[in-house]
Nucleic acid binder design. Structure first.
Lengths: 336, 336
DNA sequence: ATGAAAGCGCTAACAA
DNA sequence: TTGTTAGCGCTTTCAT
């Protein structure tokens, strides 16, 4: 059996209260007993049970992270950022991939609550908003990440998706493109990116009149390819000369498809992504993409979460950071 | 305050034992009381504390996963695979990135033990072997993944790294290449891949006489580039015509560097990677790579782990799966 | 400076 | 079928 605090106490000839105090460096303990107890702990290779201590202290030291899919580089990078901050403060992370399934999300939320995580960060896919509302009402420390629920008084950290979509579009317009396509993910953030896209067109006095040039799907490489194939199969004078993919995975799918259709990028087609993940650097040609300031976002999220943890009734805040256009080699002047 | 089992019991007019029984579907309970209790639970939105139940039942339902870096697609895909199996059995995952730091690994191991995780999966970077040995001696349910420690009687799931290295090299030789380079990660698996590489050369009667064509580093895109730059800066008649990168990240770094040096791939240089991550498909030209059967590996790992959890003294097993060469477009005949 | 004792919210014998 | 009770391994007053 694993040694308990009782074993250490007995072996050291003190009470468990004393052992607890040296463990937590709380209360006053003479150097002599501190050393003695410390020595016994080493001898016994004592590993204090954090589950027992969580039961009394009401802190588990773990935070829950819900994301659509850890295998998507954007979310993997998100997880990494959050883990780093968590680790600094001695917390750890339970990572849950929802696959955008509301049902899975609900199950995971329930699990995390029963595990008594100190707080939750929910990224992109929130699942049933009523669940979120309920948690906020219950003062569960919570931060929505890279997604927000309108009219919800809760913490969130997002990038200005609307602006990002606007910027991407403006840039393509500045290159002379007039027939644009957009492939969007069906997450809340993506909708805003599309709004930005449409408004940028409107502001330039360009009407978006070909519904085939807008496709909603979920973010995988394959879906990006399929969507691109549909768009590019249209007649030359109708199909887009530039496509805005609402995230890098979709955009890279477009790249792949375009190439296998014999198009040269950016000569025949320009492509812009969103997220600026490591993939944008890896694909060829490298991908022009709207960057989310991920490191800063994760930091802000942890700050908000910590605030909520130390004071669950603290006022909620919504933090929106600015996206940035990173120009690489997948975009160029419109073909004539 | 969150409702406890006592609140439910009082409200339903039964004892806590009864509530516990309906909670765990154990013992015999009349339909009537089961319903009654169930109703009260809903009314109170009762979330049974898994930390309390873990204290008594000695099962936390969480397993610890230690990997070098969750932001590396290979490990993200690993994590995802393990999460899927864990979720099926109602467990969850604490994910820890060690950054290949022995110190971080030691801290995380200790943390996971104190958290009383049901078991651990440690991938690629094990940290100080003595710690692992100690855990095995203590019957901590443990599986080494994609890495093994020689002479350690513990569970492990690996791919045959040696054979993978051999295969990659044989393939390059079959294309006519004679001057090969290798860039290896400094993880145990990579060493075996290099051994395979060297033995394949030896078997073909080719001496590996230019030490500059072997570089050890850690797996990042940037390191791959740097290493490639060093190799390719050598005189034409010395520098390799093909490079084996011991994982996809390194290999893609080579791709990038070669291209920016004006080389065309695979005309001027062939490149083979290892892991066959999603990146191999994304980069251009797409990367020939040695595939690890990741899905099967994660499944085997979970099976072993579950065995060890249900019987910590059960005999240990080492499972080695076979790699597979996936040919794409980064390899071709030797230039003449 | 140290210890006794009362929980924390469950599970699991054992009784009834 | 249901309830009583004794832990699980800690933290935290409150005494001493």
């Amino acid at each position: 059996m694993k040694p308990t605090i009782y074993d250490v106490a007995r072996e050291a000839g003190v009470s468990i209260a004393t052992v607890s105090k040296v463990l937590n460096k709380s209360g006053r303990i003479s150097d002599k007993t501190r050393e003695k107890v410390g020595r016994v702990m080493e001898e016994l290779n004592y590993q204090p049970s954090l589950v027992a201590s969580a039961l009394t202290s009401r802190r588990t030291g773990t935070i829950g992270l819900m994301i659509p899919d850890i295998a998507n580089p954007f979310f993997a990078e998100t997880a990494r950022g959050i883990e780093d901050y968590a680790q600094e403060q001695g917390s750890d992370l339970i990572v849950c991939s929802t696959d955008r399934s509301d049902e899975k999300a609900a199950r995971y939320i329930s699990l995390l609550l029963r595990k008594r995580v100190d707080g939750l960060i929910i990224a992109s896919h929130t699942g049933n908003p009523e669940l979120i509302r309920g948690m906020v009402a219950d003062h569960v420390p919570l931060v929505l990440f890279s997604a927000d629920i309108r009219m919800l008084e809760g913490n969130s950290v997002t990038v200005d998706d609307y602006k990002g979509g606007y910027q991407a579009t403006e840039y393509l317009l500045s290159l002379g493109h007039r027939r644009l396509g957009v492939i969007s993910d069906n997450l809340p953030g993506s909708r805003l990116r599309v709004e930005g896209f449409l408004d940028a067109l409107k502001a330039a006095g360009i009407s978006f009149d070909n519904p085939a040039n807008m496709i909603h799907t979920s973010a995988t490489l394959e879906n990006g390819r399929t969507a691109a194939a549909e768009m590019l199969n249209q007649a030359q004078n109708i199909r887009p000369t530039a496509i805005f993919g609402c995230n890098d995975l979709l955009a890279i799918g477009v790249l792949k498809e375009a190439r296998s259709a014999g198009l040269s990028i950016p000569r025949d087609l320009s492509v812009v992504g969103f997220d600026n993940t490591m993939l944008a650097e890896i694909c060829h040609p490298s991908l022009t993409s709207i960057a989310q300031p991920l490191r800063e976002m994760t930091e802000q999220a942890m700050l908000l979460l910590n605030e909520s943890i130390s004071n669950p009734a603290s006022p909620k805040r919504k933090i929106m950071l600015m996206p940035e256009l990173v120009i690489r080699h997948s975009t160029g002047p419109v073909p004539h």
